[in-house]
Simulated scan of single mutants.
Amino acid sequence: MGPALGLAPFLGYLAVFLLVPTIVVLVGAFSDNGRPSLNNIETLFSSGVLRTLWRSVLLSGSTAVIGAVLGALLAYAVVTGKPDGLLRRAVTSACGVLAQFGGVTLAFAFIATIGFSGVITERVRDTFGFDLFGDGWLFALPGLILVYTYFQIPLMVIVLLPTLDGMRPQWREASESLGATTWQFWRHVAGPLLFPAFLGSMLLLFANAFAAYATAAALVSQGNPILPLFIRSALTSEILLGRENLAYALALDMIVVVAIVMTAYALLLRRTAKWLT
């Protein structure tokens, strides 16, 4: 009974911030005007919602891949240095801050840098006569990909560093003693061990980008290029009057996608943990 009481605060936290909101979303998605209905679920298969879902998947997938590759390279460069060296402390501290640097602040930073009157935009325009801002790509899907990648890379470093630290030097020494080259070590030993962790970290980045809202909301004031902004429109738009429950259905759609991704992440993490613990 004692250990169970120790879990009570955590279970209460899960109930208030995860279980109850999920139940509210589930009930709201299958109701309309206070009555059970499948209208909102059927709307999820309309062309407009499917296009928005595809753009959300494209945004999350592309930033996950870019962030995972660049973040893995940076994490490997850090882990090859001294464990208590200045480089590692500086990089991990910076990544811890930048991974949480989002929302309105991040959007304003990019607008002030490469927006229509941004510092770099003005400098490039005056020096080379080239309009870096172009037709407003920063406020469309390409701009979201660039901005999201900014916080995906440091997040990948934080997530992958413990796995890289779990690589034992004895494995490299054993490979070299058997005549293996560096490529053969990574191809047959380190690669298969790290690949599940790498994929799992990429899935975590996908879920992180898929659920992000504040940065996109600050950048995109018109249109609904991704699902979180579509939910905002369903709740606040003067065009979709009486369709508030559509927001619940869209949120349920996101919950399903994130649940699938996080389940795959947990399975990959379990497979890696038995080798690297």
Rank of each mutant, 00 (worst) to 15 (best):
A29F: 00
Q184R: 13
L252W: 02
G134Q: 11
V16C: 15
V258L: 13
L74C: 08
R89T: 05
E244W: 11
E238F: 14
W54N: 09
V65A: 15
L160A: 06
Q184M: 15
S233H: 12
V16H: 08
I114G: 03
V91S: 07
A77W: 15
A64M: 10
L26Y: 04
T236G: 07
N33E: 05
L70M: 15
R271I: 07
A109C: 13
V49Y: 12
A90T: 07
G136A: 10
A107Q: 01
A94D: 00
S31Q: 10
G223C: 13
P3L: 08
V119C: 04
L11V: 09
T277W: 09
A77Y: 11
N39T: 09
I255A: 11
V97Y: 08
G61A: 13
P21R: 07
R123W: 13
L38W: 11
E176G: 05
I145R: 01
L74I: 15
P142Y: 07
A190K: 06
A217L: 14
F185K: 12
S175D: 01
V65E: 02
E238L: 15
S237L: 14
T92R: 13
G179Q: 09
N40Y: 11
T92L: 15
A212G: 06
A251S: 14
G166H: 05
S201K: 02
P225I: 06
Q222Y: 10
A214I: 04
L269V: 05
L11P: 04
E244L: 15
T163H: 06
A217R: 02
A72T: 14
M262E: 08
A247L: 07
F139T: 12
F30R: 03
